[in-house]
Amino acid sequence: MGSTTGIMGQVFDVQRFCLHDGRGIRTTVFLKGCPLSCVWCHNPESQARGPERVFRAARCIVCGSCVAACSRGALRLAGDGVAVATPVVDPSLCAVAGACAAACPSGATEILGRDVAVADLLAEVRRDVSVFDESGGGVTFSGGEPLLQAEFLEAMLLACRAAGIHTTVDTSGHAPWEVVERIASLADTFLFDVKHADDEAHREFTGVSNRLIISNLGRVAELSRRTGSPEVLVRVPVVAGVNDGREAVARLGELLAALDPRPAVDLLPYQPLGRSKYERMGRDQLLPGARAPSASELETMTELLRAAGLEVTIRGDRDAEVRAD
């Protein structure tokens, strides 16, 4: 154990008081890097493996501290310097060294992604241990794709197990089986995302095939049946016009119902939260027209999945009283 506590991971956020990433009140650790590039991704800052510079224009007070701090001259103040001016970065010169963020007084410029040691992250997570005790909560590893940092994740899961903290891994399932197996044998719960049952569509919207994902899902279910762990919950982000079609849903239902044990399914209606995040990162949203499913669309989907014999919740709500946002 002692040797693993020094392992470093790349984390872009730690959020306490998460209520919808598994049982109880949880602390969610967001690990950086993802093999998928879902067009609706609401965490674009999670995709790249390394640290990234983000800029929130609304917070900028145009003091120029960042420009002065950058030793590579990657930044300049745009505009005529009189009216509205914001720092503009030249990506070819920026090494994401972070001097600009350190110098920024308002927090407009930030570097997302920090290297953190297992021991330090564990200490951070342990701060809410009494809340975990009261609520039956724990820690959730999300991302990004946490399996991309398997060594770090494994060390964290071991450390949490030793500390008696319940663990959940929120994964896209896109990783070599050996990695999935190692992690699945250490985590208490797997939140296994399935985005689309159709491989073609999956490639189109996420950039990768779903074959490995679906194969891993079956094997995790099998592992769970054999060893009683981890508990597996399938999560489906529902984006209108992308994966809520009758045919796609029927195939998904068929696929999931064939698993043994049959996993519970939680639908996560798409929420257009990510827009401002893309702006902060100076990126274009890949699916600017992404839309939340309507109440009736969600209802149809729920009914189809239930007809396939699956237990369905919407955002963790068992009453599944369908409401649109």
Binding site: F17, L19, G24, I25, S130, V131, D133, E134, S135, G136, G137, G316, D317, R318, D319
Partner: peptide, 22 residues
Amino acid sequence: RLLEKDGDVDKLVALVRSYFRL
């Protein structure tokens, strides 16, 4: 939105309890 679901109220109970435990 935090208090929409029955289960969320349970979580709030836990939150209050943990503050009171301190």
